[in-house]
Simulated scan of single mutants.
Amino acid sequence: MKPDLSRRRMLLGLMAGASAPFLAGCDRMTQNAEFGAVLRNTEKLTMGAQRLLLGAHALAPEYSVADLSPVFRANGTQEPDSDEYARLREHGFTDWRLQVDGLVQQPLSLTLADLKRLPSRTQITRHDCVEGWSAIGQWQGVALGRILDLARLKPGARYVVFHCADELEATLDGSGRYYESIDLLDAYHPQTILAYAMNGKDLPVAHGAPLRLRVERQLGYKHAKYLMRIEVVSAFDKLWGGRGGYWEDRGYEWYAGI
């Protein structure tokens, strides 16, 4: 059964608008306390209903190679605008490391080669963007749950925060840098992977090289690109805007299930 996105697109469409005026419109709505309360209540109902009806391990639809979209739009940042990222890309990401820390017993620092040596999963899934478009792509990577098991979670761990290389706004406190978070239920879902390949090739820069999150039961803005660090936390209310993600801090729902 294909995901029904009509209600969620209608709600988030109020914030997303077309494209250019989005940020201003989003800011105006998030300043409205009544609208914010409605949005958060809707989010809780959506998450509860989806998990009750579908179960913790229900899979997102998967497709065949014949279904791959001829064009898969690269949304958001096309390439992080930083000297560090430019240097990493210039050297083929051989110097890149994925840091895993926070509430873990064994902090990790993994190279791209380290990740590729681990058992991988390949899946062909549909990416549904909050702006209203969809595309089908093939992703290969390592299960996020496997990485968390290697790090050995400490008691109190509840959420996984993804810190990214792309900075959408220049801010002194770092709140302009892209980040996302999911809970452990989604983190251990079999289709939640750290993808390093797309359509049979190394992940393109525009799609998040060298590594991006794929959390297939949620909308596209949850699929964080340009991963640099994974932090395991008990709560995210002290992180920047306190809503658990760059766009969530600006009015989007934290749980973007489809």
Rank of each mutant, 00 (worst) to 15 (best):
V71N: 14
V71C: 09
F72D: 07
F72I: 09
F72S: 12
F72Y: 06
F72L: 06
R73Q: 06
R73I: 03
R73M: 03
A74D: 11
A74W: 03
A74C: 10
N75R: 07
N75I: 06
G76S: 01
G76T: 02
G76D: 00
T77G: 03
T77V: 11
Q78R: 11
Q78L: 13
Q78H: 11
Q78Y: 05
Q78F: 04
Q78N: 11
E79V: 00
E79R: 09
E79C: 03
E79W: 00
D81Y: 11
D81E: 15
D81G: 11
D81H: 14
D81T: 13
D81M: 06
S82K: 00
S82L: 11
D83G: 12
D83M: 09
D83I: 05
E84H: 12
E84Q: 13
Y85C: 10
Y85E: 01
A86T: 15
A86Q: 14
A86M: 07
R87P: 04
R87N: 11
R87Y: 03
L88E: 15
L88D: 14
L88Q: 15
L88S: 12
L88C: 11
L88Y: 15
L88K: 10
R89K: 08
R89A: 08
R89F: 00
E90T: 14
E90V: 10
E90R: 12
E90P: 00
H91I: 07
H91K: 14
H91A: 13
H91S: 14
H91P: 13
G92D: 13
G92R: 07
G92Y: 05
G92A: 10
F93H: 12
F93T: 08
T94A: 14
T94S: 15
T94L: 09
D95V: 05
D95A: 12
D95T: 11
W96R: 01
W96K: 01
W96Q: 01
W96A: 00
R97H: 08
R97A: 06
R97S: 08
L98M: 11
L98E: 05
Q99C: 04
Q99F: 01
Q99K: 08
Q99W: 03
Q99H: 07
V100S: 01
V100D: 02
V100Q: 02
V100K: 02
V100R: 01
D101W: 02
D101T: 11
G102Q: 09
G102I: 04
G102L: 03
L103T: 15
L103C: 13
L103D: 09
L103P: 01
L103H: 02
L103I: 15
V104T: 13
V104F: 07
Q105R: 09
Q105L: 05
Q105E: 14
Q105K: 11
Q105C: 07
Q105I: 04
Q105Y: 02
Q106L: 03
Q106N: 07
Q106R: 10
Q106I: 05
P107Q: 00
P107V: 00
P107R: 01
P107L: 00
L108K: 01
L108E: 07
L108P: 10
L108W: 03
L108N: 05
L108M: 08
L110N: 05
L110M: 13
L110H: 06
L110W: 06
L110Y: 05
T111N: 14
T111Q: 13
T111D: 15
T111K: 13
T111V: 08
L112Y: 02
A113L: 13
A113T: 15
A113V: 12
A113N: 15
A113C: 09
A113F: 02
D114V: 05
D114M: 05
D114Q: 09
D114A: 08
D114G: 08
D114H: 13
